[in-house]
Amino acid sequence: MGNSTFHLASITKKVIMALVGLFLVMFLLVHLGLNFTVLILEGDREIFNKAAHFMGTNLIVKIVEVGLFGFLIVHIIVGIVLQLQNWGARPKRYKKRATTQLSFFSRYMIHTGALIFIFLIIHFSDFYFKAKFTDLVPLITYDGKEYHDLGLLTLQKFKMGGFVIGYIIAFILLGFHLNHAFQSAFQSMGWNHSRYMPFIKKVGLVISILIPLGFTIIPLVIYFSEAYSV
């Protein structure tokens, strides 16, 4: 894929980044919704665990999951290719460079992206791979059926200060990434309309704040609230 990616037209690559990126944002929203259910403790985290089980076993979700991984890889590869080309386009750098204030975070997409990627690897090995490929996740029984108690795992993790801090940092970085990404995706798709672009930029800003806020509020609540002692 690498070599042919280099040869895709610049705008084609941008469009791929944009579409895939927008899909990943939708996934984040679904994931966030699911995460909130971990705050519901009734019935030994039954809702969260059942939802997680559904996500892990439903055929359609599984198909989407394959697509999701595919998209994530595409997003990463195309992003890296773009960045390599961009660096290559200016072999001799400027000695002195003033910075423009327009779309500040756009300058650091590759950096925030790379850090988020590292977080993802940790995240996967903590939860996803553990549940999928090992027996390390404790089991719990609801109505006579066994489920992975991912809820418990989550609560345990979120009681660990270091983990919570790392988790929050990762989502702040994601916020930075999204801050530029959302409106940029629209620009890349050519949907820059004098009437609607200001609105899209606002939506982008709101999303880039609300998604990280949503994700980070959960560990904070769990960490500081006595109710979630396990």
Partner: peptide
């Protein structure tokens, strides 16, 4: 666009520096 890509310019990341300068 094909010619632009061919001659070695980088890709747009919608940063907007061009617009300001």
């Amino acid at each position: 666009v094909a010619k632009m890509d061919e001659v070695g310019f980088g890709n747009c990341t919608n940063t907007g520096s061009c617009e300001t300068r």
